[in-house]
Write a protein that binds this DNA or RNA. Sequence first.
DNA 1: TCCTATTGTTCGAGACTAATGAACAATAGG
DNA 2: CCTATTGTTCATTAGTCTCGAACAATAGGA
Lengths: 113, 113
Amino acid sequence: MRPLYHPPLSEITVEGILYALSDPVRVRIFAEIARSDCPQICSNFLQLGERKIPKSTLSVHFKILREAGLIRSERRGVEMHNISRCREINEKFGGLLNAILYAYNAQRGDPQA
Amino acid sequence: MRPLYHPPLSEITVEGILYALSDPVRVRIFAEIARSDCPQICSNFLQLGERKIPKSTLSVHFKILREAGLIRSERRGVEMHNISRCREINEKFGGLLNAILYAYNAQRGDPQA
DNA sequence: TCCTATTGTTCGAGACTAATGAACAATAGG
DNA sequence: CCTATTGTTCATTAGTCTCGAACAATAGGA
């Protein structure tokens, strides 16, 4: 398996971030990874609430998050450990991720808003 | 021409906003509309820097911005007047649009960041 | 070393979506 | 009416997404 590509900070774009997070499944995955202290493995997200995500589809979603620069993925044995790159991205686009995650959580928490 | 649809605030979603602004042409158009004091007409954006946008494509872009809830479009004679709905959206997703526009402007102004 | 289980990626076919030239609709002003 | 202007709709083509099946990489025994 060839090593996974992670874009350097200089290649991360606002459009790429917005696109990656414009999908309900991906934003949900990213919100969970960003919130969590410990690395999340892909298969944790095979079942998302009611919805079952095929693992090939899930793999594509992770690739999109990775190539947008939102997460970093490292193999640990047979698993992939995924962590967020919020810290780095905040250096370049301060406030962006926080605002998106805040809005997303507000929407989920209180759909009647 | 049937009246244009503008979603009520309750139907505006984070994902819809992010998707609409994940396209380089659309985010550019929206940034201009949001910044401007006076309504912008569609044909102002036929030429975007170097790039020429076909008017049918432009019409689709405006429709996507409109249906995401980001702009309001009203016919004035033969033209469409487009204004941003930032004020309304801030009520629901405070800080989101400002953060996106700020990041976008930072990226455009200083691509080396 | 080989066999098996587990995790995730890649491939390919079908479904879906986006871009755009051409035709059309709406309005204004002779 | 006739024409010019602005923008939408339609049809075609190109591109993207989804997901089952096959494949790859690793771990842990037997």
